[in-house]
Computed example of a mutant assay.
Amino acid sequence: MVFRVFWKVSLCLGLALGASLSISASAQNAPTNEEILEAWLSSPHADSTREAFRHWDTEGEIPGTCAVCHSSTGVSDYLAAPQTMPGLIDHPVPIGTTVECSACHNDGAKDLSEVLFPNGTTVSTPNSSAICSVCHQGRSSSGQVEASVADMDEDIVSAEIKFINIHYAAAASTQLGNTARGGYQYEGRSYVGPFAHVETLGTCVSCHNPHDTRVKLESCTTCHQGAADFRAIRTTPLDILGDGNTTAGIGVVISQLHDQLNAAIMTYSQEIGGGAIVYSGAAYPYFFNDLNADGIADPTETVFPNAYKSWTPRLLKAAYNYQFVSKDKGAFAHNAHYVIQLMIDSIESLSEVATVDATGFTRP
């Protein structure tokens, strides 16, 4: 299969910039078309070799369930019609495109100010963030997890339970917190809403370059002076882990808490669930039977026929939250308190019936 050659993209740049989103500085400081093209070519959106754009090569078309976020044709079609389903269209589209100029520079994107999320909520979104939120929202929500295990005993294995995947890079759902309810939210617990950064960093493109998607550390160090990397930035004085350390970067704290949740999931699966479980972020469907119970995702284990199927409702909820955090690598910046709440609540839930230590946490 042959992807569009890049000189055609260069041509569309000149046409699209006249109707561009409000994402650049004044005209005299705006990047040239050549600079924009070079930036885009270095981005994941332009990499036609990625699985995200090659998965349907054999079929010859991309189904409407995937086309909106995996092709320029799909997202253009989605934006040209009323949003009735989040990120879905009712027809397949041809293979052969990536996320090109036309995906974000079209009349539908220009006028987009509200975005429908998987939990059924339509959110008013700044113009320069709306088009990003169409795809970077995930494909599921708390309500879908709850509905899938309704009226089931929390700790009884059921063959009817299937793992629910948030999908990739659900940054917009993370940022919106309780508004989008992208993580599984436990009954009786409160969750933070949208994370409001400083006024000058209030949209996707105020942090991310819109064409190469990168974030420059200097955009953060004006306030977070001395930070050597993003994960080193601390956004709360609370001792989240109860270890006396209140200076470690919030990204480090989230990573450590994520590891604790993984350990809790493995303990519960062996003590209460249907057998040892292991996670691999690089292999679908992500959770597998840990055949030798060593806690390591071996290549022989991370194959589809060995997918973990011994789910209980309690285990599914915790595993869903583990995956939610796994798939948003920038969660520490998008809404740190929200993902910390999700993980602490998941660990505490597992500790109710398994040998899991949930003491010492300070929940934001």
Score class of each variant (00 low, 15 high):
residue 124 S to T: 09
residue 294 D to Y: 02
residue 304 F to P: 06
residue 346 S to A: 15
residue 352 E to H: 00
residue 167 H to G: 06
residue 45 H to E: 03
residue 259 D to K: 11
residue 290 D to T: 14
residue 287 F to V: 02
residue 124 S to Q: 09
residue 199 E to A: 15
residue 131 I to R: 02
residue 147 A to N: 06
residue 178 N to Q: 10
residue 121 T to V: 15
residue 163 F to P: 06
residue 258 H to V: 03
residue 146 E to M: 01
residue 28 Q to S: 11
residue 307 A to Q: 12
residue 349 S to G: 07
residue 284 Y to C: 00
residue 24 S to Y: 15
residue 358 A to W: 12
residue 336 A to M: 01
residue 44 P to G: 01
residue 245 N to E: 13
residue 296 I to C: 06
residue 88 L to I: 15
residue 231 R to M: 08
residue 134 V to Q: 01
residue 25 A to M: 05
residue 89 I to E: 13
residue 297 A to L: 02
residue 337 H to L: 03
residue 231 R to D: 14
residue 99 V to Y: 07
residue 8 K to T: 04
residue 345 D to E: 11
residue 279 Y to C: 07
residue 4 R to H: 05
residue 102 S to F: 07
residue 242 G to N: 10
residue 164 I to T: 08
residue 305 P to V: 12
residue 15 L to A: 13
residue 225 Q to L: 01
residue 187 E to A: 13
residue 35 E to T: 05
residue 230 F to S: 04
residue 271 E to C: 12
residue 349 S to H: 07
residue 233 I to C: 04
residue 271 E to Q: 15
residue 268 Y to L: 08
residue 2 V to M: 05
residue 350 L to G: 07
residue 255 S to I: 01
residue 133 S to D: 11
residue 215 V to P: 04
residue 161 I to S: 06
residue 306 N to T: 10
residue 41 L to R: 10
residue 342 L to P: 03
residue 48 S to D: 11
residue 64 G to H: 07
residue 120 G to M: 08
residue 333 A to W: 13
residue 153 D to Y: 05
residue 364 P to K: 07
residue 129 S to L: 01
residue 144 Q to L: 08
residue 193 G to T: 13
residue 13 L to D: 01
residue 316 L to D: 02
residue 105 H to G: 00
residue 307 A to M: 06
residue 363 R to E: 12
residue 165 N to F: 14
residue 260 Q to P: 01
residue 328 D to P: 05
residue 140 S to G: 04
residue 7 W to K: 04
residue 100 E to Y: 08
residue 151 D to E: 11
residue 144 Q to F: 07
residue 128 S to L: 00
residue 309 K to V: 14
residue 66 C to L: 15
residue 278 V to A: 05
